Simulated assay, not measured.
Amino acid sequence: MALLKFLFPPTLFVTATSLASFTTMASAGLSEFRGKNVEYSKFSNVGSKASDAEKSNNSTLPSRIAMATLYTPAFLAGVSSFAIFPEENLRFLLLKSAISIHFFKRVLESCFVHKYSGEMGVETMMMILSSYFISSAVMIFTQHLAVGLPEPAIDLKTPGIILFLTGITGNFYHHFLLSKLRNEGPNREYKIPRGGLFGFVVCPHYLFEVLVFWGFALISQTLFSFAYAMGTTCYLLGRSYATRRWYLSKFEEFPQNIKSMIPFLF
Score class of each variant (00 low, 15 high):
M1R: 12
L3C: 08
L7G: 06
F8I: 11
F13M: 11
T15F: 15
A16N: 13
A20S: 11
M25W: 03
Y40N: 02
Y40S: 08
K42C: 12
F43M: 04
F43P: 02
S48Q: 10
K49N: 08
K55F: 01
K55D: 10
T60N: 00
M67D: 12
L70F: 15
L70V: 07
A77W: 02
S80L: 14
P86R: 09
E87P: 01
E87Y: 15
N89E: 06
N89H: 13
L90C: 09
L93T: 15
I101H: 01
I101C: 07
H102L: 03
F103Q: 03
F104R: 04
E109W: 00
F112H: 05
F112K: 05
G118E: 02
G118D: 01
E119S: 14
V122L: 15
E123F: 08
I128M: 09
I128A: 08
L129D: 11
F133I: 02
F133W: 13
S135G: 12
F141W: 12
H144K: 14
L149E: 07
I154F: 14
G160W: 00
I162Y: 13
F164Q: 07
T169Y: 05
N171T: 08
F176K: 10
L178M: 09
S179N: 09
Y190G: 03
P193K: 10
R194M: 09
H205N: 14
L207S: 03
L207N: 08
V210M: 06
G215T: 10
A217L: 09
L223K: 07
F224D: 03
Y228L: 15
M230W: 05
Y241W: 11
Y241L: 13
A242R: 03
A242I: 03
W246L: 04
L248R: 15
K250V: 07
E252I: 11
M261A: 08
I262R: 02
L265C: 07
F266L: 14
